[in-house]
């Protein structure tokens, strides 16, 4: 299970970074989303992958409970990521209105020359 997750995280990261390098803003957005997922999955595996019981007092022996902290962290990170996604979608829509293309190579007017 751990190896499978490690491979999935690696593939997500590689795909995310690859998409960040593409010219289209839409691909950039998908790339950012994949990067976020990869980081969240990594947090998830850090909690330890093993069968267990819910971490509620009285549900059973403490040793068998799973660690709830990584899941709380992931939840926070997902919410933040969702907000950023919404913002960047609007931003790319505005960019399309303003520049008339989704090609990042056409958005060089601010670059260092």
């Amino acid at each position: 299970m751990l190896i499978l997750l490690a491979v999935v995280i690696g593939v997500l990261f590689a795909t995310g970074v690859y998409l960040l390098f593409r010219r289209s803003t839409v691909r950039l957005i998908i790339g950012l989303a994949l990067l976020g997922h990869a980081a969240n999955l990594f947090l998830f595996t850090m909690g330890g992958i093993r069968p267990g019981i819910v971490p509620i007092v009285g549900a059973g022996p403490v040793e068998q409970m799973v660690d709830p902290v990584p899941q709380a962290l992931i939840l926070t990170a997902i919410v933040i990521g969702f907000g950023i996604q919404a913002f960047v979608l609007i931003l790319s829509y505005r960019a399309h209105e303003e520049v008339g293309t989704d090609d990042l190579d056409q958005m060089k007017s601010t670059d260092v020359t």
Partner: peptide, 8 residues
Amino acid sequence: IEGTIKYL
């Protein structure tokens, strides 16, 4: 907008 996309 262009600057913000890169920064983001």
